[in-house]
């Protein structure tokens, strides 16, 4: 598969995530859009990893080139999991305080 297809797909998912972040006010939806963006990046990383692996394989059949890309995805998932646990805790906290998950209520620092 041409690598550009994967790039376009990832960009599309990433942009949808961005649009979601920009247009929605529900903190949980915003959060999910961020997850969507992370997944778009993950997909791209795997695709690149396979691209490099394919190029390296032509010269060395035993190569493991590109494996670090997939490990990056693994670590991104680790970080995402940690982020989600803390982020959702913050949202719960916010809901407990202002009885809403509207991100526009998160402007307390301004005053």
């Amino acid at each position: 598969m041409p690598i550009q297809y994967y790039i376009y797909l990832s960009l599309a998912l990433f942009s949808i995530g961005i649009i979601g972040v920009l247009t929605r006010r529900n903190a949980i939806i915003v959060f999910m859009c961020i997850e969507l963006m992370l997944n778009a990046v993950n997909l791209l990383l795997v695709a690149f990893s396979k691209m490099h692996h394919g190029i390296a394989l032509a010269t060395d059949p035993a190569t493991t080139a590109g494996i670090d890309g997939q490990l990056f995805v693994f670590f991104i998932m680790v970080v995402a999991a940690a982020e989600v646990s803390v982020g959702l805790a913050i949202i719960v906290m916010m809901y407990r305080n202002v009885h809403s998950v509207d991100i526009n209520f998160l402007n307390r620092l301004k005053n």
Binding site: L22, I103, N104, N111
Partner: peptide, 14 residues
């Protein structure tokens, strides 16, 4: 610009 609204910040960032 410093509206305190996260949405605006993000919009500007993008």
């Amino acid at each position: 610009l410093q509206s305190g609204q996260v949405g605006n910040y993000l919009l500007i960032m993008v």
